[in-house]
Amino acid sequence: MAGTAPHSQAGNAAPTRRDFIVITASAFGAVGAAAALWPFVHQMNPSADVLALSSTELDLSHIAVGQSVTVLWRGKPVFVRHRTPAEIEQARKDDTAALPDPAKDETRVKKPEWLVMMGVCTHLGCVPLGQKGDFGGWFCPCHGSHYDTSGRIRKGPAPLNLPVPEYTFLSDTRIRIG
């Protein structure tokens, strides 16, 4: 291409030096425009203060067996349920049932009596109602998804189990979510 400079007699067969300049200049212009666009796109992602508010602590000692508490974490509800022995047993029994999103109950809890998971339906983000539905777990009234006592999807349009957020036991009665 470098040798084409002398042949500038405007033939449309051989690319000229000018063609090269036009193409490289346009390419640089396009890259520059794309780079300038990025701040306008990225400004819509979560800002630093939103990212900073990403953990919540909760005292479990007040939650009796069979009770649930809903806490807000990152603007979304998290269900913390003190499960009854019957619910734990049912959840383990259902490990072998036909599950759309297979997961064993033991992989979804750190301590079997405490079920901690997002209270956000994996279909379109509604908050499911507790201890309702065909499987004794949660039921989403928006589009009819049923979850079991381990928060696994069993029936309805939702594709996935209620997700388990990152959390740690700070002591026997205290957890930090996030």
Partner: peptide, 13 residues
């Protein structure tokens, strides 16, 4: 979805 929301849920952003 996070990008549309500007956070982890529908909120002020």
């Amino acid at each position: 979805v996070t990008w549309l929301w500007g956070g982890f849920a529908v909120d002020n952003p």
